[in-house]
């Protein structure tokens, strides 16, 4: 019996060596270890053994079973691993294919600039004031120290609707309306963003419709140096903390003294920053204060105005103002980043 067991072990292990797949392996397992398998068959003869031999042969039989089990286990593991590898290989995808698009829309670049500037001024304690786009001649001009026939009206040829109504040429009338609404109260601290309209032939840098943001501060002891400080902070927030500004004397009918403001700006491809004119400003003209109910001997104020398109063109390197109004999808989608 001992020989038969040894022989069985040798035969089984020999057979297992050449097993090719999981199915063959299972057949062999049944053949040797199954309920009707060869080992069971041999062990049926255990009854005829002596009491001394029985444990010895029993032990041997267990060893044979373990050896065959272990060999089957090893094969099994190999087949499973191979099977997994095959499955994974078949499941491989092309990761270079495009991802499924998540919707991503863009806030218009002009709105982006307006919102950015609004946030800067909200941070400085300003409110946002709004007003009508169809204005009275009084609010758009006269209350801003531009009486009819004033030569400075040449500077801004306007779209009139009637003799007394026109498309606002600046957002300054919102300042006038704000002052009227505040009826002499201080402090006034607002910015007024919005669309304005001037008769201009459209080209790469001119548009008959454009956006402006004006600011107005009125209070006790508002100084021109405060205006300079405010604008320096504004420009540094907008263009970076190393931005410098300079003021040049200029003329606006509604401010006195008046100034144009240049900022340091490095153009694309330039090695050094140069000065670039970006806004107009000044101390609110006493006539303007008077007309809107503020005593110029008691209060003073400053005002400034900036063109949104110009800033957007500078910030994003857009070279044609008309792009802002054509709404070409290929243009707009570039501004989808938050």
């Amino acid at each position: 019996m001992r020989e038969r067991l040894e022989q069985l072990k040798a035969e089984a292990l020999e057979h297992l060596k050449s097993v090719a797949d999981a199915k063959q392996l299972d057949e062999l397992r049944v053949k040797y270890q199954g309920k009707k398998g060869k080992l069971t068959e041999i062990l049926r003869g255990m009854g005829g053994l002596s009491a001394e031999e029985r444990p010895v042969i029993g032990q041997l039989a267990n060893d044979v079973r373990d050896a065959i089990d272990s060999a089957i286990g090893a094969h099994n593991e190999r087949f499973e691993r191979e099977e997994t590898e095959r499955r994974l290989a078949s499941e491989t995808i092309d990761v270079t294919l495009p991802g499924r698009k998540m919707p991503r829309g863009a806030v218009h670049p002009l709105t982006r600039v307006i919102e950015e500037i609004e946030q800067i001024f909200i941070g400085m304690g300003y409110r946002i004031a709004e007003g009508p786009e169809v204005e009275t001649d009084y609010h758009n001009f006269e209350a801003l120290n531009l009486p009819k026939d004033h030569p400075a009206r040449d500077m801004q040829d306007s779209f009139y609707i009637t003799e007394d109504l026109l498309m606002r040429t600046q957002t300054s009338p919102v300042q006038v309306r704000t002052m009227e609404a505040m009826s002499g109260e201080v402090p006034v601290k607002v910015i007024c963003p919005g669309k304005v309209y001037r008769r201009d032939d459209d080209d790469a840098t001119h548009s008959f419709q454009f956006n402006q943001i004006e600011g107005l501060v009125i209070g006790k002891n508002i100084r021109m140096s405060d205006l300079k400080g405010t604008l320096l902070h504004f420009m540094q927030e907008l263009f970076g903390s190393d931005t410098q500004i300079r003021m040049r004397p200029s003329f606006f009918p509604f401010t006195e003294p008046s100034a144009e403001v240049d900022v340091t700006y490095k153009k694309k491809g330039a090695t050094e920053a140069g000065w670039l004119e970006v806004l107009g400003c000044g101390m609110v003209h006493p006539r303007v204060l008077e007309m809107s109910g503020y005593d110029p001997e008691k209060y003073s104020g400053f005002a400034f105005g900036i063109g949104v398109e110009r800033i957007a063109m500078l910030k994003y390197g857009v070279d044609d103002i008309r792009h802002f109004y054509n709404n070409d999808e290929r243009f707009l989608e570039q501004f989808a980043r938050q």
Partner: peptide, 23 residues
């Protein structure tokens, strides 16, 4: 101011009460 030079005007911060800014 213009003959004195706008560059010679200092930069200052508005004095007086602060106001809250918001939409």
């Amino acid at each position: 101011a213009r003959i004195h030079g706008y560059d010679n005007i200092p930069t200052t911060v508005i004095e007086g009460p602060t106001t809250p800014g918001a939409y």
